[in-house]
């Protein structure tokens, strides 16, 4: 399957090292990341716990492999959710 550009949007805990953990999943497979954007952290109302951060990653790869990568990203304990928004509308 031909590689296509994908945009992954991850919701992650605002903790040190989380970007490193994520980029590792790509590095291990020899993927080149086109761009990473870290969006502003959403703080919890009472500040009782670290907030959540959104990370947008643009990579190229086949849909099958990226499906795997997405699941492996979601396995990272500090990662709450990952969406492939390439074709999805972002609300």
């Amino acid at each position: 399957m031909a590689p296509t550009k994908h945009i992954l949007l991850a919701l992650v805990e605002d903790k040190p090292g989380v970007l490193n953990r994520m980029s590792n999943v790509f590095r291990r497979r020899g993927f080149n990341i086109h761009s990473v954007n870290v969006l502003e952290t959403i703080e919890t109302e009472d500040g009782s716990r670290p907030g959540l951060t959104r990370v947008a990653i643009v990579v190229s790869g086949s849909a099958v492999i990226l499906g795997q990568v997405r699941k492996q990203l979601e396995k990272i304990i500090d990662v709450v959710k990952v969406l492939d928004i390439t074709t999805e509308d972002v609300a």
């Binding site: 040190p16 090292g17 490193n20 953990r21 590792n24 291990r28 304990i77």
Partner: peptide, 14 residues
């Protein structure tokens, strides 16, 4: 060591 073991632990902490 957290860097070294990152890919071989379920999770790690410093």
């Amino acid at each position: 060591i957290t860097g070294i073991t990152l890919p071989v632990t379920k999770h790690n902490y410093l």
